[in-house]
Design a protein around this nucleic acid. Structure first.
Lengths: 345, 345
DNA sequence: GCTGCGTGTTTAATCGTTTAAACAAAAGTA
DNA sequence: TACTTTTGTTTAAACGATTAAACACGCAGC
């Protein structure tokens, strides 16, 4: 394979010891090395096209400059965008990122965590699936720096960066109410993940606060494995409820996509017959015939904070930092009042 | 940080040498180790929750079980989907994948390649940007196993997995012709990348073969940095050309997204006023008010082949395998004949 | 009783770095 | 001159594994 130049090779060619080469190339022992030797070593290193063997270096220093990132599914635009931001941010600090997708499976998650640990990542940024508390706790006990992303467990004291999902849901529902809709449904996941509970509870609370009685059928829960059929059934249930809904809040971009596909094929008109709001942005929302109002997470900020929390944790072990950021509502046509719509036309 | 159990710890506790522990845990020296000692070692290893330090192992064996994947942009759905497939495929073979995004910048690409090499990846799967021939060639000279993905350089003999972009473009144009359109435009990248040239040439050839004179204004080239403004200008140019186009082929999903956003805001009707076809699938295409006909790349097959070519290259160094797969045209409403459309309604 | 073989285990070198400590020579100080 | 300091460099151990080779021992064969 690759026959690579090592410190020894440089040392031999320069007629010095490998240690000295190491010192020079790392700019250590600053005052003491003679300028001439230093230059010679650097020249030879350049000439031989030397680059350090990270493996060996990491083994010795116990530092890999690598962070592990585990998301639910790297092919989901939400995760992919976040991953990209984190990758760029880490790179700025000379860190390499390795990714993994847990598919919301705690077993797979655990396995991924361990492969990453075997590879001696310096720390982990994790979007943990449900029932992964044990894994997180064991990481804590082992003093492995972690930052939770997008999700957190109320009972576990860790660094995390999340958004205020409860408030975001409330705001979405309030917006719908303000446009005159009162029969508001929600399709979200049947999950015990805190951030999803908060999305659900925000929806319920907003309606209650406004004296709207929440019909049981208005809240449709689907499995987190994103089964298209299940989601379609949920949409149909909302539409055939008594009374049928005139607005719906989608708990995730996957749910929104699947639902909108069905809605597209029915003869429903958005927003006249049905207003829709979606958690998270995807390109698709803007291209729907009636551009979709959505809850926008501050992805840049989330990613940057996550990396910075992790790195500061690496520096001063034990630091715990948490952030709950505010999401914003981006209002588009899918929730405009029917009357306004006619005016616009 | 993590105070981890090493072979030595197990050896000490078991009263044997570290070497023996290594042999047992790797199932080497099969016949010779006494069943009792082996069991004892395994027990203790389990008890201490041992897991091997990949860094040390890799340093010694010169094998990291890691592959590097560089795509243009991991947050683009095309790349993200492919990345996910490759990640899964590699994982099946006990390989970890590390990703990087080149942003079509040969400098960044080169840098990424080298960080990956310093980390001693066993091999690379690369979507090289334009002007990165030198990097690829130098990898070849160093005998580093690589497989090119989605793209290739005709002058360089490497393993690659690509699709037949020329044929795909031709098929798309033929389809448009078959629906009665003759004023067919294309927006694609102004790039020397072979696969993009082929897309462009396929378009030109298909028109020529059918005796259609290609107006200069019908072929709009935009920068690969995906500038929204530029793409919008291209769309406008197509629409104001003389004669104006009645169909357009988009050279990438990014181009399609940007263009469709504009088209959505104009009072153009797809497919009546304009038929559209897009290279690559994204969810958004199905949710456009007139679901978009697209050229579907066999992503699964591409990803699987790329991994398998790389791994076989790792096994038998020097093997060169290439595949040119066929893309398929998924026909949706955006290219139906206006008359058919009325019938359907 | 010697040789040879099979079995079970250890020794020791090695991968490519880092880094504390030792060393030697030159320079400064008294 | 003799001692300390400074300067420039080397030595050698270590990180945690792998692995060829050596070793020790029991046993069979002659």
């Amino acid at each position: 394979m690759q026959k690579r130049v090592s410190l020894k090779d440089i040392a031999a060619k320069a007629g010095v010891s490998a240690a000295l080469v190491s010192y020079v190339l790392n700019n250590r022992l600053s005052g003491r090395i003679s300028v001439a030797t230093a230059q010679k070593i650097r020249d030879i290193a350049g000439q031989l096209n030397y680059s350090t063997n990270q493996l060996a270096k990491s083994l010795k220093t116990n530092k890999t400059n690598t962070i592990g990132l585990i998301v639910a599914d790297i092919s989901n635009p939400f995760s992919a965008n976040l991953a990209r931001i984190i990758e760029d941010e880490a790179e700025k600090c000379q860190y390499t990122t390795i990714f993994g997708s847990s598919d919301e499976d705690p077993g797979k998650f655990d396995k991924l965590v361990h492969t990453m640990l075997n590879r001696k990542v310096d720390g982990l940024i994790l979007s943990p699936p449900a029932k992964s508390e044990a894994v997180i706790e064991s990481l804590q006990q082992k003093d492995i720096p972690i930052v939770l992303l997008d999700r957190y467990f109320p009972g576990i004291k860790t660094s995390y960066v999340i958004i205020d999902n409860f408030a975001a849901s409330m705001e979405a529902v309030h917006h719908l109410l303000s446009t005159g809709r009162t029969r508001i449904g929600m399709i979200t996941y049947d999950s015990e993940l805190q951030h999803l509970l908060e999305r659900k509870n925000g929806y319920i609370r907003a309606l209650e606060n406004n004296g709207v009685r929440v019909e049981k059928e208005w809240l449709q829960l689907v499995g987190i494995e994103n089964n298209q059929q299940q989601i379609e059934d949920a949409v149909r249930a909302l539409l055939s409820a008594t009374p049928a809904v005139d607005a719906v809040l989608f708990g995730s971009n996957k749910i929104a996509t699947s639902s909108l596909k069905l809605i597209n094929s029915l003869s429903l008109r958005v927003p006249c017959d049905l207003a829709v709001i979606c958690f998270d942005h995807t390109e698709m929302l803007d291209l729907f015939y009636s551009p979709v109002t959505y809850i926008k997470q501050p992805l840049e900020e989330i990613g940057e904070l996550a990396v910075s929390y992790l790195l500061s944790n690496l520096l001063y072990n034990g630091t715990i930092s948490t952030s709950q950021l505010k999401a914003s509502l981006v209002i588009q046509q899918s929730t405009s009042r029917p009357d306004e719509l006619y005016q616009a036309k």
